[in-house]
């Protein structure tokens, strides 16, 4: 495991924990898209089905369990415990527009036409666009709390770091996976606009607000 891969995992973990803590401490999930969180729960569930059949390392297994557990906990906090603070009116992105094309594409373009492989591919495609409901929510309300911005920045950095990891692996081991690579590029590109706003505003101490 190279440093980019490790920092990527760490960044992903930080993002997930920031979100959970934000909701827990403020007792509110306003500004957070429950729909994106449902998509992430689906992503982790379909990707880590090999959890019990395919052992890689203690690190790998524990991270998978932490990601899955945290994503379900987040969904529970939004739709259960702090439901009263959830922004139903603004979180209106139609997730079937992401789920259906990802599923169709996973059936058409995959490495191997087997159930586990298709589900893994589906999770990769879905993850690349799963943040769209959240970005849609931010653009609809025109602003994001600073802590939400930190969450989005950590979550976006994770795939960017994985891209560097794949570049590293390509040159050092000749390893590459086009499905993961192209999806990872799309996923990172979707965050570019946000990265720009984050660096130009949030890091200078201002709240992230979009121009009217």
């Amino acid at each position: 495991m190279n440093v980019f891969r490790f920092l990527g995992d760490l960044s992903h973990l930080v993002a997930i924990v920031i979100l959970l803590l934000k909701i827990w401490k403020t007792r509110s999930c306003s500004g957070i898209s429950g729909r994106s969180q449902i998509l992430f729960a689906i992503v982790f569930t379909t990707r880590y089905l090999d959890l019990f059949s395919n052992f890689i390392s203690v690190y790998n297994t524990s991270m998978k369990i932490v990601y899955i557990t945290c994503s379900y906990a987040t969904v529970y906090l939004i739709y259960g415990k702090f439901k009263a603070t959830y922004d139903f009116n603004h979180d209106t992105f139609r997730i079937e527009f992401l789920l259906v094309p990802s599923a169709i594409l996973a059936f058409l373009v995959n490495h191997d036409f087997s159930p586990l492989e298709i589900l893994w591919t589906f999770s990769i495609y879905l993850e690349s666009v799963a943040i769209l409901p959240q970005l849609f929510l931010v653009s609809k309300t025109g602003e994001a709390e600073t802590i939400t911005s930190h969450y989005l920045f950590a979550l976006g950095s994770y795939r960017l770091l994985y891209l560097l990891n794949w570049l590293w692996r390509y040159f050092s081991q000749g390893f590459y996976d086009l499905i993961a690579l192209l999806s990872g590029i799309l996923q990172t590109v979707l965050y570019c606009d946000f990265f720009y706003l984050y660096i130009s505003k949030v890091l200078k101490g201002k709240k992230l607000s979009l121009p009217a």
Binding site: R5, I56, N60, Y162, D177, L178, I179
Partner: peptide, 10 residues
């Protein structure tokens, strides 16, 4: 060597 990502990455 392709299609190994799922085995060791997250």
């Amino acid at each position: 060597q392709v299609a190994d990502t799922k085995k060791d990455e997250l």
